Simulated scan of single mutants.
Amino acid sequence: MSVSATVHEHDLSELSSQQLLRLERSIAEQFMGGLPWGSIVWAFTNLAVWLSLWPLTLSGALPLWAAAPIATLNVILSYLPSHEAQHRIIAREGERLFWLNEVVGHLSPVPLGLPYQAARLTHYEHHKHANDLELDPDINTRSDSAWHMVVKDIGMQLRTVPKTNIAYANALERLGTEDARRAGATLLAYALVTNALLFGFAWAGYALEVAAIVWLPRIVGGLYIRFFLSWAPHHPALAVGRYRDTRGFRSRLGNILTMGMQYHVIHHLYPRMPLMRHPAAFRALRPILVARGCRLDGI
């Protein structure tokens, strides 16, 4: 019988903090390892669909009213496979498939316009300093309510330089390493290329087409990502600490449409656990999470 199958039989209140941690880790270990093929296929399929929109839309074969929602879905789906790569879940440096980890990391977020190295380094900072007003690069999503977050985010994205880009650039500058400097330069290059792309296609007479494939999807899709990957699992983003900076929550949209974030508390506890195993791991670990005082809102 597995450890996870017997955890409900324990009176956890009788265990010391160290005993509880050992039990927690022994259960989590059952969900670690292996190659997340689902995320790998997801990354390349999503990118291929987004790239196909360019010839189809520019040639007039695909109408703008169809291209825009498809591109928005591509943007929404573009981040999480790279997120797996950021945590070296596909393969660690020095392992045989590390090249695949890096290819997924770099290519998957292309529709979003987010460079991999900048995303990886700033995301590590988020894990180290979750909900810290000064050091968490994702703290800008902190808002009083869901609607407040939506309105605030749209306003930030319509600025000449989005506030999220500034927060990431500041985090990289604070790190001050050579990797961080290169990532900062790449972040700037991505922003310049995006603006050149928008202006270039507009100048050539394809303003509506590039708006449908790039501009509007990145605003709407980016909002969706920040809402469910940042605001929802951390709201109200006031507490810090291993068991308090993230919450489990129940959404009417379900786990798939919230991109697995109902169980994001598992990711902050075990960042190298594949995303698709989080629900099962959460069910196995739930009694321990309750004993640790985790916020589990309706889940």
Rank of each mutant, 00 (worst) to 15 (best):
S59N: 12
G60T: 13
G60C: 07
G60M: 07
G60P: 11
G60A: 11
G60D: 11
G60L: 07
A61S: 15
A61I: 14
A61D: 15
A61Q: 15
L62D: 02
L62Q: 06
L62F: 06
L62C: 01
L62P: 05
P63F: 00
P63Q: 11
P63C: 06
L64G: 11
L64N: 14
L64E: 09
L64A: 07
L64C: 08
W65E: 14
W65M: 13
W65S: 12
W65Y: 12
A66W: 14
A66Y: 09
A66N: 14
A66H: 12
A66K: 12
A67W: 02
A67Q: 06
A67N: 10
A67C: 14
A68Q: 09
A68D: 10
A68W: 08
A68F: 04
A68R: 12
P69C: 04
P69H: 11
P69L: 00
P69I: 07
P69K: 03
I70S: 05
I70A: 09
I70T: 09
A71Q: 00
T72I: 08
T72E: 11
T72L: 13
T72D: 06
T72Q: 13
L73M: 12
L73W: 11
N74L: 07
N74I: 03
N74C: 12
V75P: 00
V75S: 03
V75F: 02
V75G: 01
V75R: 07
V75C: 02
I76P: 03
I76Y: 01
I76D: 08
I76L: 11
I76E: 10
L77P: 09
L77C: 10
L77K: 04
S78K: 07
S78T: 00
S78L: 01
Y79D: 15
Y79I: 15
Y79K: 14
Y79E: 15
L80K: 13
L80Q: 15
L80A: 15
L80Y: 15
P81W: 00
P81T: 06
P81F: 02
P81Y: 02
P81N: 01
P81G: 05
P81S: 05
P81E: 00
S82C: 09
S82I: 08
S82N: 02
S82E: 08
S82G: 01
H83S: 08
H83T: 03
H83C: 02
H83Q: 09
E84V: 03
E84D: 08
E84K: 07
E84M: 00
A85D: 14
A85V: 00
A85E: 03
A85Y: 02
A85H: 09
A85L: 03
A85I: 12
A85T: 04
A85M: 05
Q86M: 15
Q86Y: 11
Q86W: 13
Q86C: 14
H87N: 01
H87V: 05
R88E: 15
R88Q: 15
R88Y: 13
I89M: 04
I89W: 03
I89Q: 10
I89N: 07
I89G: 00
I89H: 03
I90W: 05
I90F: 03
I90G: 03
I90V: 04
I90D: 04
A91I: 01
A91M: 00
A91C: 05
A91Y: 01
A91W: 01
